[in-house]
């Protein structure tokens, strides 16, 4: 399905972001990419749709080398790769519907999209997707009028409007509160299994990754240091990925979150009784 073959990326400043990354992702597989910030997670998924140009290596989507494509054919392939962003990256001043329909831009000529004359089938499908993410009644609102969780749902609908073969998801929950994070993550995973879509999901939140991913890849300083099932992700592996100090801090943070959540639930319970 997707094969990444010894991809490397060195930025113009000489920083080596990725070194010799090789991966294969099967149809319908949801892969979590974990690692500390600066490990190259964002760079790796941006190399796949070439928002960042890889310096070396090849990336095959359905046996077609994406790295070798010229701009025109790259655009055709980008249509098949849906992307979901950390800070939603919706066009804020357009409506929810326009944002979802913007997933169709690559399939339509400029004049049609300029006049917003989208084919009836695209509009029908956009409504179906908005219904799927639970925003049918928000279609005509402006994107900047929505809450964070709602915006990310629009982002998901936009990616799905492309009829993608692959989803790239960059820190989908980093701008959301813990509860909304779990809802959004559950939605993404459900949709992937509904459509049998493979997905690569950058995620810094390890508990969330353990809960939702089928396979986890750990990145450290631009190299793959772990690739396996969530159950194989042991304490020592996490220490390798994050470094001893950071991993302990993350655990502590997570425990604090759980404690305060438990505390809040207890207080709420006391109020009710």
């Amino acid at each position: 399905m997707l094969t990444i073959d010894s991809v490397g990326k060195t930025y113009g400043t000489g920083d080596k972001a990725l070194t010799d990354i090789s991966l294969t992702i099967e149809k319908g597989q949801v892969v979590g990419l974990i690692g500390p910030s600066g490990a190259g997670k964002s760079t790796l998924i941006r190399c796949i749709n070439r928002l960042v140009e890889p310096s070396t290596g090849h990336i095959y989507l359905n046996d077609l080398d994406l790295v070798a494509l010229d701009q025109n054919r790259l655009r055709q392939q980008r249509r098949r790769i849906g992307m979901i962003f950390q800070e939603f990256a919706l066009v804020e001043r357009l409506t929810v519907m326009e944002n979802v329909l913007s997933g169709r831009l690559g399939y339509l000529p400029f004049w049609r999209t300029y006049l917003r004359r989208f084919p009836a089938s695209d509009i029908e499908n956009a409504y179906r997707l908005l219904d799927r993410v639970g925003l049918l009644d928000q279609a005509d609102k402006r994107a900047d009028a929505l809450s964070g969780g709602q915006r990310q749902r629009v982002g998901i609908a936009r990616a799905l409007a492309q009829h993608p073969d692959l989803l790239l998801v960059d820190e989908p929950t980093a701008s959301l509160d813990p509860k909304t994070s779990r809802q959004i993550m559950r939605l993404i995973v459900e949709i992937c299994s509904d459509y049998h879509l493979p997905a690569i999901i950058n995620i810094h939140d390890v508990p969330l990754a353990l809960q939702f991913m089928q396979r986890i890849i750990g990145l450290r300083q631009g190299r793959v240091v772990f690739d396996g099932a969530p159950s194989e992700l042991t304490e020592s592996v996490l220490t390798t990925i994050y470094g001893a100090e950071d991993w302990t801090n993350m655990q502590k943070q997570h425990e604090d979150d759980l404690d305060s959540e438990a505390d809040a639930t207890a207080r709420l319970g006391a109020l009710r009784s």
Partner: peptide
Amino acid sequence: DEKQVEAVRATGASGFQVMHY
């Protein structure tokens, strides 16, 4: 905000479409 532009580009939109959306 370049993120919005990047998102539109990622859908496979052409140069003029990226500009317009």
